[in-house]
Amino acid sequence: MVFKRRHKEKLIEATLFWIGSLTIIILILICLFLFRDALTLFSTHSFYSFVTGSLWYPTADPPLYGLIPLLLGSVLVTFGAICISVPLGITSAIYISEIASPRVASFLKPFIEILAGIPSVVYGFFGLVVLAPYLQLWLDLSTGQVALTGSVMLAVMALPTIISISEDAISSIPSSIREGSLAMGATNWQTIYKVVLPAALSGISAAVMLGMGRAIGETMTVMMVTGNAAVIPGMPEGIVESVRTMTATIALEMGEVPIGSEHYHALFAVGSVLFIMTFLINLAADIIKKKYRFKLEGS
């Protein structure tokens, strides 16, 4: 009986180990299936012209699969979103963790969390029917479906991520550090700016990275509000012109391509680029976070 029981425990542990490793297996499968279908493209199409091509005309003859306009579209929209959401997010996190009374903070936090729950297609819808017409009117544009609209919507979507992680980072600074500064006659703001923020910096950087990862991978919202013109955006005027991101390209075109065609594989290639980019961003955020935890515990 003892033998049987030990056997059973061992078996259970082994099973649990494999289930625990499932996420690794899935990640490997994603790489495998994504890259396999992507690499097929390069048997008929040059890798160089994919990476450096400035034109995305998949239905032209011969078809052109240039990544650059899509990549720049993604970068532009994401960059715009980060410019809006980082200052807003970090200052909001400061307010919640350093200035607001506990009562106010405990109301604000779940209220802002609502933003994290709203589906991206609803954001897209809101951007399309509310924000875009207003932007068109205010900025006197020919269409409201421009990069800026996407940036604003993405910024709102990235806010809860940035706020909650920054807030965690700021709150985890021991109060003794704050008290030390205040006791020397520094104002609240000086304490926040010179002591608390530097100490929380790596946590905040991780928050920004994760917000960026979220923004660059967002699909439905940008697809619905950025106009989807596959042209290389001008800098800086491209922000008020229509652009097309990598995510939107995949979502828009995948429904119409014959499975297994060159175009199909080109979309997988775009997906692979997207996957690698977000993978690196997440990895960086993870490493920063880990370093920062180590730093706090080490002292």
Partner: peptide, 9 residues
């Protein structure tokens, strides 16, 4: 990483 992978992927 799985949590951060874009939904379209």
């Amino acid at each position: 990483n799985l949590a951060g992978t874009p939904s379209v992927v």
